[in-house]
Design a protein around this nucleic acid. Structure first.
Lengths: 191, 191
DNA sequence: GCCGTCGGTCAACGGCCGTAGAATGACCAC
DNA sequence: GTGGTCATTCTACGGCCGTTGACCGACGGC
């Protein structure tokens, strides 16, 4: 009698609603940024009442925090060349999918101080890994520049929508960027 | 008798007030972005009433547009190497001064569609110049990537405030970026 | 010297937003 | 079956914001 799709249990229903709200929130935060996004709009997009969003997530800030939790993209260690290549692949991946979640973070990071803090914290491990793989005294600066390039390309493609960048294929982009990344990741040839 | 600083004429006073408002607006837009900036805050920072801001600029949008008018940084033509070097110098300059105006644009570009349009339009000539100097079929994409890197570095330094990047000297940054820029600006060596 | 012009202020309105809290009604443990 | 739990909604409040229009008072052309 208990058909699998018969009627969801209460817990299931709650999880379902939370998920719908989070999905809607991610989309709208990504489109509009933190400030222009309203709880009412998120609730309406999720087909629920604004009060429910408050009930589940406590506040707009907390909803935003939950919406923009990003599982850090693991970067395997290795030589500087390998890490550069891994970073390129990671960029390629982020250019290939529709980066809704990533966009919400990026867009809001630039207007919301808390978001910036969380983003910095979330990116720190990856940045450290990068730093450790680069065998120069200025490794930390080099790693930061690599990170800046990655973010710059993503921002320019999806936020500014520079047409050349928005239309190019991920492969083309990472191929052009490869020498760039290598020059930053590997020490200058000292003959 | 007409001491130069005796009493400003009416036109002078108006220009002075407009300038104070614009200066305050640029600073606050840069700090807070478009949405979080209120006309009242700008007016208060400029020592005038909010109504006056409306009176002079018509609306918040128009005030923003006037605040973020940026004289395009002229990029001299030349060989791809020369243009790459010129772009590096331009970046160095933007890293050296406190880039209030530039920041207001950048920060707001990422949340305000109109600002993005204007920014794209304002950057187009520079981008074209860059494209024409690069002697490859994919020159436009290369130029866009260069632009993305410039913006990425500025954003990461001033918006995200990645400490490594925020503390580094402009010279150090552009030295590290030089091979990067060259690899994008010049065609791959085809032996 | 008079009066229109104009820089500047003030108070107010309508709207939207985040948030709180009461109300409702279906589910589930006992 | 009964009572409580819980998902969900409804209504409302207080605040801030962009914008308006009336108002004031000093300047400057005539």
């Amino acid at each position: 009698m208990t058909e699998p799709s018969a009627r969801p249990t209460r817990a299931q229903q709650r999880r379902q609603s939370e998920e719908r709200i989070l999905t809607a929130a991610r989309r709208i935060f990504a489109e509009l940024g933190y400030d222009r996004t309203t709880i009412r709009a998120v609730a309406s997009a999720a087909g629920v009442d604004a009060g429910l969003v408050m009930h589940y997530f406590g506040s707009k800030d907390l909803l935003f925090a939950r919406s923009t939790e990003v599982p850090a993209d693991e970067l395997p260690g290795g030589t500087s060349d390998e890490v550069a290549e891994a970073l390129l692949r990671s960029l390629g991946r982020r250019l290939a999918d529709e980066p809704t979640a990533s966009l919400a973070v990026l867009r809001s990071t630039l207007t919301n101080a808390d978001a910036a803090d969380r983003y910095r914290a979330a990116g720190a491990p990856q940045l450290n890994q990068l730093t450790e793989a680069i065998p120069t005294p200025d490794a930390d600066l080099r790693a930061s520049l690599l990170s800046a390039i990655v973010h710059g390309v993503i921002a320019e493609r999806y936020l500014l929508r520079l047409t050349n960048l928005a239309d190019a294929s991920p492969e083309q982009i990472i191929d052009l960027l490869r020498p760039c990344f290598q020059s930053l990741a590997t020490p200058p040839p000292t003959p």
